[in-house]
Amino acid sequence: MRRVFIIAVPYLWLLALFLIPFAIVLKISLSDVAMARPPYLPQFSWEAGWGAFLSQLDFENFTFLTTDDLYWKAYLSSLQIAATSTLLTLLIGYPIAYAMARAPDEWRATLMMLVILPFWTSFLIRVYSWMGILSQEGYLNQLLLGLGVISEPLIILNTKVAVYIGIVYTYIPFMILPIYAALHRLDSSLIEAAEDLGCSRAKAFWLITVPLSRNGIIAGCFLVFIPTLGEFVIPSLLGGSGTLMIGKVLWEEFFNNRDWPVASAVAVVLVLILIIPIVLFQQNQQKQNEAQS
């Protein structure tokens, strides 16, 4: 009985916070847009019953998504932005995690604190402050102009570069922490052994350290990739008009078009696209757990 209860908790969690909201979104995606409050029909009523309700649902909104290449382009562009930012985050995050794992014991707690500290400030405020740093009259340009590195202010804000900076900055702790955890556990005698057997330090790094931190890298990449794909706040605050991301398209369908059904269809497809990396991630975690036990 107790076991059943313990198992039930995560499933109830999943049911309440994922499946029920998803069912609501799915239901709206099968309705038709209407000038009503809320702006779609049919709306379920107990008097009309399930039959009348279900008979009015159709897949029109999903076929509509295929008729316009905007959605396709937005999904692709989001995938590309998410993949690039994940790679950038990895390239920057790995050395940081490595340095943290190699730092003297008494420093580690402080370094860990420094990685986590930004979370104490609202995400929105941190993204906003990047606008102040990156704008044409912002701190970065003032610094570079003052140092004489550049003679004309750089245009960074409202470009894709700013979006990448924002994403990498925001998500880098999610990359550092799992990699750090993996590197921290790494048995340093293995590297000593490799070096004793004639490996150069670089070769030992590629042959021993990187493969043994693989699970951390994979976990970090998923933790960055998945939320970045549907990211809305960063591209809308830091990006320019050319940054096409599915999160923004969804917003426009919902707010500008008042077309909740199509917006919901876009969201359902996004969730389906995300399920693939999430399932891969789950499998990886499971393998890792099995390997440990």
């Binding site: 316009d68 290449d69 937005a74 050319g242 096409l244 398209v249 426009e252 500008n256 008042r258």
Partner: peptide, 19 residues
């Protein structure tokens, strides 16, 4: 009206994103 609104928003999205 609803249908025209969609045309307008779509045009606007095309303009903003350049696609």
């Amino acid at each position: 009206p609803g249908k025209v609104q969609r045309t307008v928003t779509r045009l606007w999205t095309r303009v903003k994103s350049g696609t």
